[in-house]
Design a protein around this nucleic acid. Structure first.
Lengths: 190, 190
DNA sequence: TGCCAAACTGACCGATCGGTCAGCTGCTGT
DNA sequence: ACAGCAGCTGACCGATCGGTCAGTTTGGCA
């Protein structure tokens, strides 16, 4: 396969995530790739097609994780195991996640974004965001949006780059603390 | 004072926050206000001026909070008191906060956005994000980005509207849990 | 009434947007 | 040697962008 398609996808991902989809022109993507705008439209028939190719792999992986998750029983152990899996997903696809977290609402009516939003709803339902208390719902929202924000803006907030494993462990800790089920008797976190 | 200016500012804020700055045209803002594009440019000499008028009040308030904060001593009590103040700020200016949290990096070289980014850096320094552990920095990033994300996307995540006071209390709880200082002896959260 | 400034408008401008198209280049299989 | 195709390009298109400008409407005040 030609590397141009993959290059374009990677460049588009970085630009879409950092500058925003509508603020990124095909001309700029072409320049960064050392190609002409026509060549970009040769590989991807439209800007929207390029967007779809950019985040589809992340959505496929997320769908796979959710499918496996919903097949299991909803035990606290399942939740904990899922969190590690979910953190790995975020770390691997942090640009894509940040993109449809931050820009999802502004890109409605784009099919691939609608698919992403559906996945977020499925995820929120797993964490009982629909039936839990207000604070439970807020915990889910903060964990999801916060992880996506922090992983993409770490550079601009004077974070020196940390070992990836250290980041992973810290993220699992924080998300577990935020999302662990509440003991229904004492209403304290267990 | 004419209400047109204020109407335009409110409309622009809502559009900039939900659809994004670069994805919102002056024509659309004018339509929503029932005016012509020329009238928008009569009240605000440029799109950037409108952006500045849109988020400047929130930045003024944030600067005021940070000034008062840095004048106090850096005690745990001061931290706790600040968190309540900070939560009130986020609740009052949630659209503005969400805007420069999510779109700040994509709007560099706009003076008012640079000012907003400087404020975020000041805030992160207060929480020792520079000198703390990796997990401490991540907690700050998740709290800031997560609160901004959750408050603006609550509607789209099947959150039925909750009483504002309940939201406020829950947010203070969560942010306190995320940002409370670590006991240096036991390295457990106190 | 007449006047003037604030509010507002439509016509217009250059730039840039996403996208189309005809054609050029270089490699591969026969 | 030649056919064919993938990769790539510049010229061009209509639409829309932010912004300018001359001119009209409107409302309060002398």
């Amino acid at each position: 396969m030609s590397t141009s398609s993959d290059d374009l996808r990677a460049i588009a991902l970085a630009e879409f995530a950092t500058a925003g989809y509508s603020a990124t022109s095909l001309h700029r993507i072409a320049d960064l790739a050392g190609l002409s705008k026509s060549s970009v439209l040769y590989h991807y028939s439209s800007k929207e097609t390029l967007l779809e190719a950019t985040i589809a792999p992340a959505l496929d992986r997320m769908e796979q994780i959710l499918d496996a998750l919903e097949a299991r029983t909803l035990s606290p152990e399942g939740r904990t195991a899922f969190l590690a899996e979910f953190v790995d997903f975020i770390l691997q696809y942090r640009l894509e996640v940040n993109m449809f977290i931050n820009q999802g609402p502004s890109l409605v009516d784009v099919p691939v974004i609608d698919r992403a939003n559906d996945l977020v709803v499925r995820l929120s339902e797993y964490f009982a965001a629909n039936t839990g208390s207000v604070e439970e719902k807020m915990r889910f929202g903060i964990a999801l949006g916060g992880a996506a924000y922090m992983l993409c803006r770490a550079d601009s907030l004077n974070f020196e780059s940390a070992p990836i494993e250290q980041t992973r462990v810290a993220l699992v800790n924080i998300l577990t603390e935020l999302l662990a089920p509440v003991d229904p008797i004492t209403t304290n976190r267990i």
